[in-house]
Design a protein around this nucleic acid. Sequence first.
DNA 1: ACATGATCATCA
DNA 2: TGATGATCATGT
Length: 219
Amino acid sequence: MQDLPSLFAKASQLAGRSFAELAAEVGLKVPKDLRRNKGWVGQLLEQQLGASAGSQQLQDFPELGVELKTIPIDATGKPLETTFVCTTPLVDIEQLSWEQSNVRNKLQCVLWIPIDGRREIALAERTVGTAFLWQPSAAQEQQLRQDWQEHMDRIALGQVEQISAHQGEVLQLRPKAANGRVKTQAIGPNGQLIETLPRGFYLKTSFTHSILRDVFNLP
DNA sequence: ACATGATCATCA
DNA sequence: TGATGATCATGT
């Protein structure tokens, strides 16, 4: 993708189209459901939009500074799931600041694409919604920064295992792993290294809901 | 293991 | 019924 207007135009033209027809265009098979294919819709839209694929710590469109995120919504436009942002660093974090954090980098500019997430509708028949570009307002960035700082402070103090998803107004910390046996290093309560479950940063649904309401002028 | 893409399954 | 903690697939 060469420029932002082109990307946005292409994303806008996906509105109203079904997963079945979009999958056919790129030669994908529509799974029966998402139970064993949780990232399928995201990958479908990546292919449709030509995101620079890869499992790298980069935005989806590095040359444009844009991150692509699908967001499943119900019939009223409410998000059905939280939004994963990135893995949480648990060691070598003493020098880390919000300004250089992966959370801030990923959320600097997001191309949101709402999708029909209703499980009662067959996956193939679900459709894409209206894409929009978002950059956090000063107030939103302040909320994100504050939550990020509180989480990182606890992690630096060796309290990562005391953090629950209840903490954080807009940005929460939750497990992010293939299963409960996966381990990674973190700072322990006495400053030593411990093994713990990998964590990720997620946007709470109340936050993404407010983003959707702002953009679509909903109550 | 860790990055990407997320939703599932269960319980309060 | 909403949210938390757990989990699934794939590529490097």
